[in-house]
Write a protein that binds this DNA or RNA. Structure first.
Length: 410
RNA sequence: GUGGAUGUAGCUCAGUCGGUAGAGCACCAGUUUGUGGCACUGGUGGUCGCGGGUUCGAUCCCCGUCGUCCACCCCA
């Protein structure tokens, strides 16, 4: 007594009842579709060496710079709870030497991610992502297919979205563009916000993404990467657009769309919902062809995405619950004993609720109705004396009395 | 990290110009003989977030703290 109540940590939430059902519904829907697209499940550790995220996500990002759950473990290792999924999966891809095989690998995953941020709508410190990563496929068709897959997932969940796409260029066209951009930004440096001034040196591309109106207005004449793409990147981006057109997926080219993580190149995309407040990105991803090599694997093209499960939770409707299973109750102690034996047989193939308390028929019916049972099996005084069961289907209202030994278990 | 709002039953909220609280929903039980969803009646349930201060007295006023929500920022 007197001990302080233990509450969940800030920004961490229990998913229970309707929320947990939605969670499962979202994940099973996404799994089904990604399997159809050729993805298989990968499960990796939540804890990784801190260096993994520093090298892949990039130290300039806020995620790594100030939001990681990072600590020394008892073996004095510098470790960290994963703030996102891709880095760990790329590490696993390399650790398992899959980069040595000249083949294609596609993985889906889901699970908790951790970011030490200030919580708000659509932003938790412990949250869940469902994501996919595809390795070994450089074709822009893969970019297209992955966007189709996300579209299919959202359609299956009946979620509206807007799609934004961009190309971030490759190792050939990005660096020269970057030089151009830095020179442009340096000229208008004094007009930009403090964050942007800082970004010019650390990660100038991020300036394009600045939310401050004043900065945005300064940027309308900035050199656009889209106009500076090399031939391959340009033709791939055009191909992607025509493929999307061919299947009537609407999209908007957003030249300022930059992914916050350093590892992206070429195709970048974001799915936006207008119905969930300011944290409107419900899925995001893109190509990261250099990351495997960067983490000391054999150079392998790759592309992936992640969906924020909590962010779409308010957008999904649970399929309507149907009456299901059996409710067993009695008016006397001996009846409960008999029903207990029956329950053990029924439960092999059915959802079963056995009421241990002696109650009136009316009371049992109420309880059975409340838990959504389809069939009630009842033993009253008559049934006990005659060794029979009173059975009623709560949906069709059909009822019958049968001998106990006549009951079929299906 | 910054700003705004907020914290009263399991849930959604009302209320006391300072005298230790109420509704709806939910839950439980009844509405006479063994028939559910509706209706009616009754009941259980709150040290009014926590800690200090002012006061004869605080859930209400003041300060602090913690949590929650929303926005900035960041991102899924």
């Amino acid at each position: 007594m007197g001990a302080k109540m233990i509450n969940p940590l800030r920004g961490m939430k229990d998913l229970i009842f309707e929320d947990s059902q939605k969670f499962v519904h979202i994940v099973t829907t996404a799994i089904k579709i990604s399997k159809n697209y050729g993805y298989s499940y990968i499960e990796i550790p939540i804890l990784e060496e801190t260096a993994l995220f520093k090298r892949s996500v990039g130290e300039s990002s806020d995620i790594v710079g100030k939001e990681m759950y990072q600590f020394q473990d008892k073996g004095d290792n510098d470790v960290c709870m994963r703030p996102e999924g891709t880095a760990g999966i790329v590490r696993a891809f390399i650790s398992n030497k899959l980069d040595r095989q000249d083949s294609t690998f596609r993985f889906y995953y889901y699970g908790p991610m951790f970011r030490y941020e200030r919580p708000q709508k659509g932003r938790l410190r412990s949250f869940h992502q469902f994501g996919c990563e595809s390795f070994g496929e450089a074709s822009v068709y893969e970019d297209f297919m992955i966007i189709c897959m996300i579209k299919d997932i959202f359609n299956a969940l009946d979620i509206n979205f807007a799609l934004k796409i961009n190309s971030l260029g490759c190792k050939d066209c990005m660096p020269p563009y970057r030089v151009k951009l830095v020179s442009f930004l340096s000229d208008i440096k004094d007009e930009l916000c403090e964050d942007c001034k800082r970004r010019i040196d650390i990660n100038p591309i991020r300036v394009l993404d600045c939310k401050i109106e004043r900065c945005q207005s300064m940027l309308c004449n900035s050199p656009k990467l889209i106009d500076n793409l090399c031939e391959v990147c340009d033709s791939d981006f055009e191909k992607l657009k025509s493929l999307l057109d061919s299947v009537n997926i609407e999209y908007e080219c957003d030249t300022n769309l930059v992914r916050g993580l350093d590892y992206y190149n070429k195709t970048a995309f974001e799915f936006i919902s207008s119905e969930i407040g300011s944290q409107s990105a419900i899925a995001g991803g893109g190509r990261y062809d250099r990351l495997v090599e960067f983490l000391d694997g054999k150079s392998t093209p790759a592309i992936g995405f992640a969906i924020g499960i909590e962010r779409i939770m308010d957008l999904v409707q649970l399929p309507q619950a149907k009456r299901e299973g059996f409710y067993l109750g009695s008016m006397n102690e001996k009846g409960i004993e008999n029903l207990c034996a029956i329950s053990l047989n029924l439960v092999k193939n059915n959802k079963v609720t056995l009421e241990y308390k002696v109650k009136s028929l009316k009371s049992h019916l109420k309880s059975a109705d409340k838990i959504g049972a389809k069939i009630i099996i009842f033993i009253g005084d008559d049934e006990l004396a005659n060794e029979t069961l009173w059975i009623k289907d709560l949906e069709t209202k059909e009822e019958k009395i049968i001998r106990i030994d006549e009951l079929e278990f299906s």
